[in-house]
Amino acid sequence: MNTLVFQLSKTAIQNLVEQLSAYQTSNNNPYVTFAAKHKNATFLAYTSGKVVIQGKGAQDLANNLKLEANPPKSTSSQNALKTDHNRSMIGTDEVGNGSYFGGLAVVASFVKPEDHNFLKSLGVDDSKKMTDQKIQAIAPLLEEKIPHQALLLSPQKYNQVVGKGLKHNAVSVKVALHNQAIFLLLQKGVQADNIVIDAFTSPRNYQKYVSKENNQVTQAITLEEKAEGNYLAVAVSSIIARAMFLENLKTLGEDVGFQLPSGASAKSDKVASQLLAAYGMESLAYTAKLHFANTQKAQALLKK
């Protein structure tokens, strides 16, 4: 069996996910954010940014997706969190985009040079490298100390605005939330030397969608790949957003009497089918993002 491995940016993976959305399959690995089968090959995207393509048609699928093999980067070459001691920054990040259950959390945080020692003392890092327990422990300290703007789009509201024939798609809704979080934080009077968004789409796409928003941020904005691992301001936002997403997931689960899993694996399909059996489609509209393929998979499970 042929196996190809790629290390890709979040934006590149998101583009591949959009291309393969019609071929999505379930996967029980908690570190797999998306799985698909196409052209006699299995496509797996991991939380680490690694993409694995396996099967007889692996090379054909890679060629179709215009992927070229590249050697993995040495861990010693990875950038540490950047701390420009002379500049203040607004950084934004989102959590929940790849999870079927739960809302979409977006946070913008304002970090000044004098905050750096405090943040380092807490062990602030990219939230993907931290346990949920640590995230939930330090998030309240960050919320108290660091000026920020947090937005949570509940699944119920998400389903009203995202989907075929509705106002937003999965990318434009994130653009709207990032833009609004930055706008509201600036309205509070903070003055940042730089504004950085952890890139989830191309700058061209971002500009296309943000131009349609009522509230416009006039200051220059940079979209940077893997910014949550490079900048303290983005790392703070990723931690606060992750804590908010986990709290929302817990609350929604308590409301319907089920433990709702994070991610979009076969476990989500199973819980969704149980919710359908117990309460019908309204329960999924309240707890989950309906345009995910998990909805159809849950309905199929229910018919078995």
Rank of each mutant, 00 (worst) to 15 (best):
F101W: 08
A62I: 00
G102C: 09
T75W: 07
A105N: 03
L67V: 14
T83Y: 11
E68W: 00
P71A: 07
T75E: 13
G103Y: 02
K66H: 14
A108C: 05
L61V: 00
R87D: 06
M89Q: 15
A62R: 02
N63Q: 08
I90P: 05
A108E: 08
L104Y: 12
K82Q: 14
A62N: 05
N64Y: 11
T75R: 13
K73N: 08
A58F: 09
Q59F: 01
F101L: 01
G98I: 07
M89A: 11
G103M: 01
A69R: 02
L65F: 04
E68M: 02
Q78G: 00
Y100V: 07
E68R: 07
D84K: 07
Y100D: 07
L67W: 09
V107L: 04
N79G: 01
P71E: 05
I90Y: 13
A62L: 02
T83W: 09
S109K: 03
N86E: 14
A80K: 12
Y100F: 15
N86K: 13
P71L: 02
T92Q: 11
N64C: 04
K66I: 00
F101E: 08
A58H: 08
N97F: 11
G91M: 03
K73R: 09
A69S: 12
T92A: 09
H85C: 03
G102R: 09
S99D: 15
G102E: 14
N79P: 09
N70R: 14
G98C: 07
S77E: 11
Y100E: 06
G91A: 10
H85W: 11
T92F: 02
R87E: 14
D84G: 01
A105D: 03
S99L: 02
V106H: 10
F101M: 02
S76K: 11
A58M: 06
F110L: 04
N63F: 00
V107W: 06
N79C: 06
